[in-house]
């Protein structure tokens, strides 16, 4: 099957699904490693929501690749270059602050992205987004509260979360740089103009940073490429861990 020759809508669905799947996979690695049980459970709950959302997008996208294609083919049998997730979502878990900084940037974007997608010209995409928006509002609330707790906590927690947020800021800016896939989906009327979401996102992020006594978000040169299939060195490791079982035993059943 050729993943790179699909129509704008399918490519865009893969992009959305890849974000949800890769971040869901990253968060799943916290299972059994969270600092306390409640937070371990919170991250795995969010992981479950994201993987469920990836399934919705992939099931829809799979229709375009013929009757034999399933959501599993799209998740487990594509190579790194055909994944179109944002670079941010594949960044390593690091420490708790790194994970929460990544989550806060993503959740806040995801919320506004889904809000826009719930007005999409594509009916099925609109329905998927309206459903996920409700769940994502809980994710965004959770990660924002952690930014406040860490930023307005001890000197050590403040300095560590500030460093995580500063390090990940250029990755977050990839959200607002349209890829060819974003552009084609926008032209088709099914996706928002991502550049137009930047101001709303920065305002929301800064309102939380202010509560958290953190420095305002500063614009920098975006680290981009993930949405076009050009990934960081971490991507291959995520895929290897996620795909190895399905590729070793292609007929395995749960």
């Amino acid at each position: 099957m050729k993943w790179d020759t699909c129509d704008p809508k399918t490519a865009y669905l893969l992009h959305l699904g890849d974000d949800a799947l890769i971040l869901g996979q990253r968060l799943a690695a916290w299972c059994g490693h969270g600092p306390i049980l409640e937070q371990d459970i919170a991250l795995t709950n969010i992981s479950l929501d994201l993987i469920g959302l990836a399934r919705q997008y992939y099931q829809y996208a799979a229709l375009e690749f013929g009757p034999d294609c399933t959501e599993d083919d799209l998740a487990y049998f594509r190579e790194s270059r055909s994944f179109m997730n944002h670079l941010l979502t594949e960044q390593p878990n690091g420490h708790w602050g790194d994970t929460l900084a990544r989550q806060f940037y993503f959740d806040t974007f995801h919320f506004f992205q889904l809000e826009a997608l719930s007005q999409s010209a594509d009916e099925r995409l609109r329905h998927i987004a309206a459903k996920a928006l409700k769940e994502t509002s809980y994710h965004a609330q959770f990660s924002a509260e952690w930014i406040v707790r860490l930023g307005d906590g001890t000197k050590e927690s403040h300095d560590k979360i500030q460093a995580s947020l500063t390090h990940l800021a250029p990755f977050a800016l990839e959200f607002f740089v349209p890829s060819a896939v974003d552009q084609a989906a926008y032209n088709a009327g099914i996706a928002p103009d991502v550049a137009s979401l930047q101001e709303t996102w920065i305002n929301k992020v800064n309102s939380i940073f202010s509560l958290a006594t953190l420095d305002p978000f500063t614009l920098s040169f975006p680290k981009k490429g993930g949405k076009s299939g050009i990934h960081s060195e971490h991507h291959g490791y995520v895929l290897a861990e996620m795909q190895s079982l399905a590729r070793t035993y292609p007929d395995a059943k749960w």
Binding site: E38, I41, A42, N45, L48, D49, Y138, Q141, F142
Partner: peptide
């Protein structure tokens, strides 16, 4: 409230 996320979604 202890946590927004509990034993199930």
């Amino acid at each position: 409230l202890i946590s927004h996320f509990g034993s199930t979604a």
